[in-house]
Design a protein around this nucleic acid. Structure first.
Length: 589
RNA sequence: GCGCCCGUAGCUCAGCCCGGAUAGAGCGUUGGCCUCCGGAGCCAAAGGUCACAGGUUCAAAUCCUGUCGGGCGCGCCA
């Protein structure tokens, strides 16, 4: 049940009536906005429709308001309709409208609040998709938490959601990783040399090298002088770090041969990918599919052919270019490099076509904000290939900055000195991490304070919300001990007298509970799971205030039972909201 | 230089999409509250030029233009 939707319906009917009576000309477009007024004296909902229409109808807002009010269908859910201020229509609902909310929550349970705005539509949600060149760090964690929460949120809005991780298992970065692994392996074999500036230096590279060394002993061993002979100097020796590492990659392939090189390459890829999978799983983030870039090879040639056939490409300086500037991009982009290699961009076009061909209605990508300049060219490619680029929605996530109290933690991927997602999880726990990550709007910079996330005090919003849930569980344990209830569904078999809920704290709780479906729908439409965290905090607060003011396990049986039903409803909604953002709802803390 | 994001209380941020009534929350600060269902809780107070300047409007934190400040991006990298 959704009070706002029901009311919206009443206003639609009123407008239709007024149009039939030609009070409102049929060609006037009317958008009905209902809001929850800040002041309780303004009722439960307010509508500014009369003021919006005043200009078009050339009438005074209050006169229009009166006509609208007169045209509103009668319903027992509405107790009072006032016209106030400049022409607001203020609606006060009958108490039993709110009482129905409790029944609705207790019968719909996990389904309470879910909607159908996305019904029938399928969406493919791609997120994280970090290169498998190292463990996930705290930046990826934000994308993971946001993506997983958004997936749940969209599913709650009725979409069929498919989660996907795009694995960049081809390309230069992976070759740099493979070469870094091999060089560390050579060091384990006793060779001594200067590790390339542009190589991957994290400890995990040593671990991969060690696993190779354990299994294959010296099978991939080559002498230092053969490896570095004729290699252009590294940046520290006055050379170019890119030239240096590229030459080393070529040397690795040459000395190892295709087969052995692949063994080294795959060992790195697989160990890191397994690690990422485990990491995300422990973060309660799961995927329907891990899509390999390498598997795109046939799509890749087909994509190039299509672009060429449509005349959107040209050759210049030995490379193949896509005329993306004709489709809104600021300049043209290279598809095939001078050396014959396709660019990452080409693979990405193929990947997006692949998604569309699989029949998804909506494509959502969650990217780091540093990739924002990349969006126009991907959309340009889709447009060039006769697809509607609006079906692709790219959501950008800003980076997270870690703090330990006041101290800002420096991060550098280069040196391998970054805080990993695993370290974060182990330090603050998955629940706090998930909550903190989605607490901010995604395009907002996030300051993540480790001290705050760990603190088990009132400053920590995660515990505040979880505590409300656990506290309710505790009341039910106590109720059972005292013999007040035999089982947790007793109020569903015996009639409850909801009119006993008379206290302001009880009314506040009912109002907040009734807002949940509206809040969810808005959050889903805007792709903003952070709204859930704000809502949950409010609901938890309303509960704590109520709890502090009134005793639940009292002698008065009728009031006791109805209060139990109220807090059971609160507990259900806390559970539903926490579940969407991927945070557990504990019975005990 | 161009493009995108951000600027709201001491700090961290909601609210902006879709204009509406006295601009909200948490933290921090100050002072209070259970012999009682979990004090990881509650109550109260102080705290604002919504960056700035114009414009549109009956009405602007919200829409438009410009300025200033902060972040990011502008590769035949991914």
């Amino acid at each position: 049940m959704n009070l706002k939707q029901d009311l919206h319906h009443l206003f639609t009917q009123a407008i239709d009536t007024l149009k039939q009576q030609t009070v409102i000309p049929p060609d006037v477009t009317v958008e009905i906005h209902l809001e929850r007024p800040r002041e309780t004296q303004h009722g439960d909902f307010a509508c500014n429709l009369a003021m919006m229409l005043a200009k078009q109808l050339k009438q005074r807002p209050r006169d229009i308001a009166e006509k609208i009010v007169a045209a509103l269908p009668q319903t027992d859910f509405v107790a009072k309709v006032d016209i106030a201020g400049a022409g607001f229509i203020n609606i006060t609902l009958a108490h039993h409208a709110y009482h129905a909310v409790i029944t609705s929550i207790l019968t719909e349970q996990q389904r309470y609040g879910t909607g159908n705005s996305g019904a029938g539509k399928s969406v493919i949600l791609e997120f994280v998709s970090a290169n498998p060149t190292g463990p996930l760090h705290v930046g990826h964690g934000r994308g993971a938490a946001y993506g997983a929460a958004l997936a749940n949120l969209l599913a709650a809005a009725g979409y069929r959601v498919h989660n996907e991780y795009y694995v960049n298992d081809a390309g230069r970065q992976m070759n740099i990783l493979a070469t870094s692994v091999w060089l560390r392996y050579l060091e384990l074999c006793g060779e001594q040399f200067k590790f390339p500036a542009n190589g991957y230096r994290g400890d995990y590279v040593w671990d991969i090298a060690a696993s190779l060394h354990r299994e294959y002993a010296a099978a991939f061993h080559h002498a230092q002088k053969d490896v570095f002979n004729q290699i252009p100097p590294d940046v520290d020796d006055g050379g170019d770090k890119e030239d240096h590492i590229d030459a080393l990659i070529a040397r690795a392939k040459l000395l190892l041969g295709e087969q052995h090189y692949l063994v080294v390459f795959d060992r790195g890829l697989n160990l890191i990918l397994d690690d990422i999978r485990q990491d995300l799983l422990q973060f309660k983030v799961s995927y329907d599919h891990w899509f390999s870039e390498r598997s795109l090879s046939t799509d890749l040639t087909a994509t190039l052919e299509r672009l060429k056939a449509n005349g959107h490409t040209y050759e210049k300086d030995g490379a193949v270019w896509f005329r993306s500037s004709s489709f809104g991009d600021e300049k043209d982009r290279v598809l095939v490099r001078e050396n014959g290699q396709e660019t990452y961009f080409t693979a990405d076009i193929a990947y997006h076509l692949n998604k569309l061909n699989r029949g998804f209605d909506v494509l959502i990508n969650i990217w780091g904000a540093d990739h924002h300049g990349y969006v126009p060219r991907v959309k340009a490619a889709l447009t060039a290939l006769n697809h509607d680029a609006n079906r692709l929605n790219v959501l950008l996530v800003q980076f997270a900055t870690l703090y330990r109290g006041k101290e800002r933690l420096q991060m550098s991927t280069r040196s391998g000195e970054f805080v990993t997602l695993r370290e974060l999880r182990e330090e603050v726990g998955a629940d706090a991490a998930r909550f903190f990550y989605v607490q901010r709007k995604s395009e907002q910079h996030l300051d993540f304070d480790l001290e705050l996330a760990k603190s088990q005090t009132s400053d920590n919003p995660v515990y505040y919300v979880q505590y409300a849930h656990a506290r309710i569980s505790s009341v039910f344990r106590e109720a059972r001990d005292k013999g007040f209830i035999a089982n947790s569904t007793q109020w569903q078999t015996e009639p409850l007298d909801f009119t006993r809920l008379e206290m302001p704290q009880e009314h506040a709780l009912l109002r907040t509970l009734s807002r949940y479906p509206e809040m969810l729908e808005m959050a889903a439409t805007a792709c903003e799971p952070h709204q859930i965290t704000y809502y949950l905090r409010e609901l938890a607060q309303d509960f704590h205030v109520f709890y502090n003011a009134h005793k639940i396990l009292i002698e008065d049986e009728s009031l006791r039972r109805v209060r139990l039903s109220l807090i059971a409803a609160v507990q259900q909604v806390l559970y539903n909201g926490l579940t969407i953002i991927g945070v557990s709802a504990p019975e005990v803390m």
